[in-house]
């Protein structure tokens, strides 16, 4: 019984590892990922902007949390996924891992950018400044630079997409190893340069009514990442395997 189960997992692994079946299997999920993400976003927006009570210290400005925190979470979550995919892509030369890795970079960069911009828009009314060189904002900015470096590497070798993806994967792995070092050194650095150390959430307790929309939005961004990443990964596979028969059947049968 148990043996059969592991076999099923192994076959699933092999199936997901081959571009045509990855393309086919991910095709079933795309629409649902997008629909669930849109539904959760609508629900989260209504819950967060209308139903949740205003914070007693920050008033209505705390509602920025519903886009800021999910974006910040996703910026790190996506980098982790991308780093793992990059390691697999380099060691086992698995094409699907390359696709997942390079497909994660643009959406990850977007979320990092959003975390910075919404953080700045939250900081202005709360701290009185658009930008504060505190540990979290500085690390987030460096994270954005890492994302940009990965995408720039991929773009620089555009004449050979596979080589470009493997180069970008190496940059991602080097960044992954460096991230903890960067994070802790920046944290240590900002603790020495005692600036205004105001935490965004302040002392206010977060109630269930306030937390609920945050969870909706957090899941909504995860599902949207799933959609955007899978769609990009499929396009990468289609483009790099455009000489293969399966790509031709996909194209001709689609329309």
């Amino acid at each position: 019984m148990k043996k059969q189960r592991t076999n099923a997992i192994v076959t699933l692994y092999h199936k997901l590892g081959s571009p045509p079946s990855f393309y086919r299997i991910s095709g079933y999920f795309l629409k649902w990922l997008l629909l669930i993400s849109i539904a959760l976003t609508c629900w989260g927006l209504y819950d967060g902007l209308v139903l949740a009570p205003a914070d007693y210290q920050q008033g209505d400005s705390f509602r920025i949390i519903y886009v800021h925190v999910p974006a910040a979470w996703m910026s790190m979550f996506i980098y982790a996924v991308m780093g793992i995919a990059a390691i697999i892509a380099i060691i086992w030369r698995m094409k699907v891992a390359e696709a997942v890795m390079i497909a994660s970079a643009p959406i990850g960069a977007w979320f990092t950018f959003l975390a910075l911009v919404t953080g700045s828009l939250w900081g202005k009314p709360m701290w009185g400044t658009w930008w504060e060189w505190d540990a979290r904002m500085t690390s987030e900015l460096i994270l954005l630079f890492l994302y940009i470096g990965i995408m720039a590497t991929y773009g620089a070798f555009s004449e050979d997409a596979r080589k470009a993806a493997r180069m970008a994967a190496l940059v991602a792995v080097v960044g992954l190893v460096n991230l903890p070092i960067i994070h802790f050194s920046v944290k240590w650095w900002s603790s020495i340069h005692q600036g205004t150390t105001v935490s965004l959430t302040g002392e206010s307790h977060i109630t269930w009514e306030m937390l609920r929309p945050l969870l909706y939005m957090a899941f909504a961004t995860k599902f949207y990442y799933g959609y955007s990443m899978l769609k990009r990964a499929r396009l990468y596979l289609l483009e790099t395997e455009s000489q293969k028969k399966w790509a031709h059947t996909v194209i001709t049968e689609n329309k």
């Binding site: 890492l146 470096g149 590497t153 940059v171 080097v174 460096n178 960067i182 050194s185």
Partner: peptide, 15 residues
């Protein structure tokens, strides 16, 4: 590109 890749990694060294 080299500058973009290397600079963020050297931030801790500078600190």
């Amino acid at each position: 590109l080299l500058t973009v890749l290397v600079m963020p990694l050297l931030a801790p060294v500078l600190i």
